[in-house]
Each structure stands twice: as C-alpha cells, then as structure tokens.
Design a protein around this nucleic acid. Structure first.
Lengths: 340, 340
DNA sequence: TTGAAAGCGCTACCAG
DNA sequence: CTGGTAGCGCTTTCAA
C-alpha cells in the first residue's frame, strides 16, 4: 500500500514563511488576521491538498467528536430507526457515532461502556438492557465529564436526561381503542414487570380496563420473558384454553402479537371478528401480515434524533447533566387486526 | 460536570521513581524488564485506576483502531445483519466501527467517505450505492495506505478484496426450484441493469429458463428502479393484464415480492396455486406474510463478519490490497409462496 | 534492565 | 496582526 506523505501545518508555515500558529488561525477562521494572509494560506492548503490530522487535533483538544451509542440489538427495526435518527442529527453537528450492542445483557453493556469510554467518546447515548439494575458503568462517564442521554429503555439509577415515549398513555389509548371496537374481555401479553416500559404499558392497560368498567383479571395477564413469537403462541394457547377465553389481546410488542396471531389462525379463530389483536412498536412487517396488525408507532427516528440533539446540546453548552424527562409522541396505527 | 483528573503515565513514573519509558514498557508487556518492576507498575496502575489516553496513543501510533463502514441504509434488514456481523468480528479484534449511510446516493457516499477518512479510520468496509460508477473517493483510502474491503454491492472501479454472494447461481437455483414445482411461464421483476447484483440475478434467471427449455420473453422482465413495494404491485398488474400472464414471478428482492403478492391478492389470484412467487434476501417478514414467502437467504451476518475479518487481516499483516473475490454461500428458503 | 529525550501535529498562550 | 513557544500523553530510539 503506497503511503502518500501528508502535508502538515508546519510544512505550510515553512513554505509560506509564516508561523504555524498563523497558519492554524487562518485555516480555522480566526478574526484577527489580514484578508490576504488568510487567502494565501487557504489557497496553498487547497492547492497542496492539506488535510488536518484529526488525531492530533483530537489529542490537543481532548475531544473526539465521536458519540458512543449502545442499544440492546442493532438487528431490530425499532432500534435501527433510532440509530438512523441519531446518526443523521450527529452528522449535522459534525459528530460521528460508534455503535455497540448489549444483547440485553448487563455484562455486555458494561464491556461496551468501558470500551467506548476508553475510545474517548465525547458522550453516550444509551438504551439500557433488561438486566440493568445499577449504573456504575454509566456513572463512570459522568465522572469523566462525559454526558449521557438515555432513551427508550431507561434506568432511574443514573441521573441523566431521559427520553421516552409515554408507554402508559400509549397503552391506555391502544386498549381504549379495543374497547371502543366492542371488545370486552381484553387480555395482555406483557413483558417483565421489572422493566420500566413493560410495567408502564401494563399499568396503562389496567387503567383503561378499569376506567371503562371492564373486568380486570390477573389470569388474563401473562408475562413474556424473552418477548418472543414463541411466547406469544404459547400464552395465547393458554389463554384460549382456559375456562375464560378473552376476545382481544393487547401485546407488549409486535413480535408477540405475531405469535398470538399464528396460534389463533392455527385454530381457525377469526381475527379480528372473534379475537382482536393489538401490537406495540409498529414493526415494518405489521403492514404485511394477514390480517394487517394494529400497533403503536414509537417514532424511533425522531427519538434517536432528539436523543442526539439533547446530548450535543449539553456538549456544546457545557451544561450540567440533569435528570430531565422528555417525551416523544406515539401514534396509534389502526389496521385490520383490531377492527371488528 | 465534575471533571475527575485522570492519572497519566508520567504521574506513575514520578510516583514510582521510574522513567515514563519504563512505565510504558511495563504496561505494554515488554520482555526486557524485571518481574518486580512490572508488578510494581501494574499494581500501582491498577490501584489508581490508570486508563491510558487513547487519543494520545492513537496520535502517537498514527492509527485509531476504528474501521469505517458505509452501507446504503441502516434501516434495512439485510444491511443491519451485515453490521451486526462486522461489529462482532471487529470487537473480537479490538476494533470499533463508525457507521455511515449513503442512502444509495453517490453524493452522500462521497461525503461519508471523506468524513471517515478525515476521522482517521484505519480501513473501510463498504457496500456501494446504486449510483457508484467511479471510485475516486474510495481510491483516496488506498492512497493513504488504508485498505478497503467491498461487500455485497461492489464496484469494479476499485481494486480491492470483494465479498459477494453468487447472485447468478442463487437466482439460477431459485428459478430452477420454481420450474421443478411445475411453473412454466416465469416472469422476473428485476432491478437496474447497471447494478451488478441485479444484472447477475437477471442472468441467472435467464439461464435457468433457457437451460430448462422454457420460453424467455423480454416482456416478462420488468426493471424496478426504486426496488419498492409499489413497483412490485404495478409491474405485476402490467404482467397479469398483458396478453401473456406468467404463472410465477421471481422478484429481485422480498419487498418487491410483497408488492406482487398484494396485487395478486387484490385480484383474488391464488398464491401459489395460480401464480408462484419467489423473493430474494429473506427479510425477516417473509416468514410472517400470508402465504409465507419463499426467498434466498444471503447470510448477512456471516458476510459482515467475513468482510471485517478480511479487512483486519490486511491491517494486521500489512498486506497489499489485491483484487480477490470471496463468496458467501446463499440458502434457498422454500416456504409456501412457491409450492404448488 | 532502565533512563533521557525527542517528537508525533496541532493549538493556545503570551509577547510584541 | 503575527510569531515564538510550550506542551497535550505517549512511544521509541539511543545510550548507559
């Protein structure tokens, strides 16, 4: 590989009989320089294709213009949209993003945090794993003066700006929609109750049921651990074969809803006529299933974008990291599976 | 934000009455040091939580241990799996990845390349945009001694290792499967003929048709430009309403196949009985459509992983960048849409 | 086995 | 308006 000797600031200075400082200033647009000097330097730099050495600049300024971003999984429609949004905004402000994933395991999240911290990222965007019940590894960022912004899956163990959708309200609205469609016996395939989003959705579900004078039954709530299609199938089977079959199911996320639909269809139970289904997250595939799946869109791209914006704002203004909450509006997407 | 003063190599040296060089050597495991010195330094570093300043190391060594990766889109099942694979392998070798997307536009690809080059990445993994018909912006990496590895969507304008699936053979096999199922009038919703993958698939389709003595008709080949569901619907409509309706359609990718299925279903044409459908790429949703969609899995994760491996290999051995081809095996996934 | 010292490329402070 | 210069933290010769 042919290494091409790169021209440096000093080279330009020597060639132009200027001092390195002057050249630096000219290139970085400082005010107190004569027009002609600036032009001369810029012309020369352009002509000789000068590229500043980023590593030297980073080193000197003690910053990298790189943000770290940790999500549970990259191969996941919602998270990939948040990444998309974060990258777009980061780019706009001259930042790059180094990605890492936790696979929803604390061990991996800690490893990734340390790696990113070691890399010298300027700040961190994170959606924590299901297992994250403490935040020492994140506090380490704050201790080094590097701000952290949490989004979607958050932990209260870290004082930092937090960006979420209103899971409670979204679930409430989704279930209310089912009720308005005439469903009366609504079950819930929920998630782990120690995971905040899941718990909020559960509360929203329950509140909607109770506000509308419907019966709340413990045995109509099933906790999915892996949030998988398989669990959706199995719990739906349990529900339907119990003495008290529901006439609608509100699912913690679309993949669980798919499992529910698969089971019902295998038993020739008509969706939405006999049983209505509501998902959550609005995965891309929800529009392609048969019947199409009603869901709640979380506007992942907007969320990623906003999270990056918050972080960059803190970076630019050297703001202190505070415990503020921000909300992204959700959108109820009504398709076939929930319309009687 | 409370900045905590980080301890440096010099601090350790002073404290231990050693020279910085000795400390550096101790920490980096040089051979010619006494056991006790090494232990003393390591203990001290550990105890005082010494973290080397990556920026200084990068600067000094003139490398970042960061790989650049450019894909057309991140929010795309196949590409997100390649990213997953690349990240996993990169991590294993101590590399990080900075992502960028081209949105399938040359302009954005060039911008991203320059950005990554400026960031000082050690090498580049890229799947080029549809518009990439020259490679100056990629050659710039090679000119600086930074290796480039292309994967999936490649351009011949750059001499570099290339990693692809055998689109020709995969298409040939997929179409052959349709023929064996008894379909005789097979159409093809193809892509842009100036995009290599698309052209290869087209050739595979055509060869399979001809090898089995079936009729090849120009008007059974429709070129999709955006590779969208909408195009899938429209071209399928055209095909079905022409005098010569096909009895199977081989689609350039799954999303086009979904469009085809939507149109057929809107006309109550039975899949796979009346018309068989074959996709390509094996998007996650192919397993959830009704009927489920047969497709070709490209093993994206393996591809990303292998691409990273090739790049890191070059980096480690300082190998020259050569024009070698590597192949990832595909897998024909037969589901309902293609089985009469 | 260890130390001294140079220097990577750049920025920023202090002078003039 | 411009120059001189120190120094960021680390690695790596060269010398001892």
């Amino acid at each position: 590989m042919a290494e091409k000797r790169k021209i440096t600031l000093k080279d330009i200075a020597k060639e132009l009989n200027l001092s390195p400082s002057t050249v630096s200033r000219a290139l970085n647009g400082y005010p107190s320089l004569s027009e002609e000097t600036i032009q001369m330097v810029k012309d020369y730099a352009e002509k000789h294709n000068y590229i500043p050495n980023t590593m030297a600049v980073n080193f000197r300024k003690n910053r990298t213009s790189i943000l770290g971003m940790i999500v549970p999984q990259i191969v996941h429609h919602f998270f990939s949209t948040t990444i998309d949004g974060a990258m777009e905004t980061a780019k706009k402000h001259g930042y790059s993003i180094i990605l890492a994933q936790s696979q929803d395991m604390l061990k991996d999240e800690i490893r990734a945090s340390q790696h990113l911290l070691g890399m010298g990222v300027d700040g961190l965007l994170i959606s924590v794993s299901n297992e994250t019940k403490e935040a020492e590894h994140l506090q380490a960022f704050l201790d080094e003066g590097k701000p952290v912004v949490q989004f979607d899956k958050i932990t209260d163990y870290l004082v930092s700006p937090k960006l979420v959708v209103d899971d409670f309200q979204s679930a409430y609205d989704a279930v209310t929609h089912l009720i308005k469609q005439g469903y009366r016996k609504i079950a819930h395939l929920s998630g782990r109750m120690d995971v905040k989003n899941a718990h909020e959705r559960y509360k929203g579900y329950r509140k909607a049921i109770e506000d509308h004078g419907l019966e709340f039954r413990e045995d109509w709530v099933k906790n999915c651990w892996e949030i998988s299609e398989k669990e959706g199938m199995e719990f739906t089977k349990e529900l339907m074969e119990s003495g008290n079959a529901p006439d609608a199911i509100f699912c913690i996320t679309d993949v669980v809803a798919l499992g529910a639909m698969k089971h019902l269809q295998s038993k020739s139970i008509a969706i939405p006529q006999q049983v209505g289904i509501m998902g959550f997250s609005n995965w891309m595939l929800s529009d392609y299933t048969s019947p199409t799946l009603s869901s709640v869109d979380q506007h992942g791209k907007a969320m990623g974008s906003k999270a990056a914006e918050l972080l960059i704002e803190i970076l630019k203004n050297q703001d202190p990291v505070t415990d503020e909450f921000h909300e992204i509006k959700t959108e109820l997407i009504i398709r076939e599976s929930s319309q009687k």
